[in-house]
């Protein structure tokens, strides 16, 4: 039906450009004729040898340079792998991950519920949507690190403070994206529902939410990314726990391989959640014309 980008683009141009950039360009693609007789592994090989070569070369180069200067400070890949294994075997990494997830997941869930509800409200009521928009913009643009002193005064440095930091960052993009989707809902379909005497709640459930799903997902993408950042901020600046705790403590000791090992887990979390959202989107949007 509708394609979200035009609105979502103004909300988050990077999402759009990023996705556009990640689609292999026609230049990089294989000439169509050569594909015909290739088996899947030949295709995979043709597609993946360049990044594999590049990645390997980069790693080797890094290894050589860091070995020749200071393998610990510059996190030689071999040392990083070692550190990773060590953190896993000692259970430290798993413990930290569980701690991080213990507020990342609830924080994100709260953001999703609040954000979607707020977005629907702002999308359905033009007046309130316009009135609240500048405040949301301000919160969205405010670097969360800047308000750390306030958060400490208001919530201390414990669980609530961490949840607050995460929710503050994630709820706004989800709400803004959802309200854009709600406003994009086809007037014709709203009217069709109304002609059958649907109540406001029924309209929201049967028309507004399904038609806004692509927007909601794109809001969730940004929200999740910002929730991850929020977790790092909370762990580094509020109290040293979780993965961010490892990052900060080891950075202070100049143990770069451990810092990178912990940061990699964050990257992994980010990658996993983006993949999951992509899968959900494809499933839910099955009704869309190809």
């Amino acid at each position: 039906m509708q394609t979200p980008p035009s609105q979502a683009a103004s909300l988050r141009p990077d999402a759009v450009t990023a996705e556009a950039a990640l689609v292999p360009s026609p230049v990089a693609g294989r000439p169509p004729g050569s594909v015909l007789r290739a088996s899947w592994w030949q295709l995979a090989l043709r597609r993946w040898w360049p990044p594999a070569v590049f990645g390997l070369a980069a790693l080797i180069l890094w290894e050589l340079i860091s070995q020749s200067i200071n393998p610990l400070l510059f996190a030689a890949p071999s040392r990083t792998v070692e550190a990773f294994g060590e953190l896993i075997l000692s259970g430290e990494l798993l413990d930290a991950l569980i701690v991080t997830l213990s507020y990342l997941v609830p924080g994100l869930l709260i953001s999703v519920v609040l954000g979607i509800a707020l977005g629907i409200f702002m999308g359905r009521s033009v007046t309130w949507g316009t009135l609240l928009q500048p405040y949301l913009d301000a919160i969205y643009a405010l670097p969360r690190v800047a308000i750390i002193p306030l958060v400490i005064l208001w919530f201390g440095v414990g669980y609530e403070a961490r949840i607050f930091i995460i929710v503050l960052g994630s709820v706004v993009p989800i709400a803004m994206s959802t309200s854009a989707g709600v406003r994009y809902t086809s007037v014709k379909l709203l009217e069709a529902a109304r002609s059958f005497q649907a109540t406001e709640l029924q309209i929201i459930r049967h028309v507004v939410i399904p038609s806004s799903i692509p927007f909601i997902i794109s809001g969730l993408r940004i929200g999740t990314e910002r929730a991850l950042v929020g977790a790092v901020i909370a762990e580094v600046f509020l109290s040293l726990t979780g993965l961010g705790g490892i990052i900060q403590t080891e950075a202070e000791r100049f143990n770069a391989p451990y810092v990178i090992a912990a940061a990699l887990v964050y990257a992994l979390l980010g990658g996993l959640s983006m993949t999951a959202l992509g899968a959900i989107e494809r499933r839910i949007a099955a009704w869309k014309a190809a």
Partner: peptide, 17 residues
């Protein structure tokens, strides 16, 4: 072709860490 797959991963990475 060499770099694009990494761009996605790097982009998703919370650089703040």
């Amino acid at each position: 072709r060499m770099v694009v797959p990494f761009l996605g991963a790097l982009y998703a990475m919370p650089t703040i860490a």
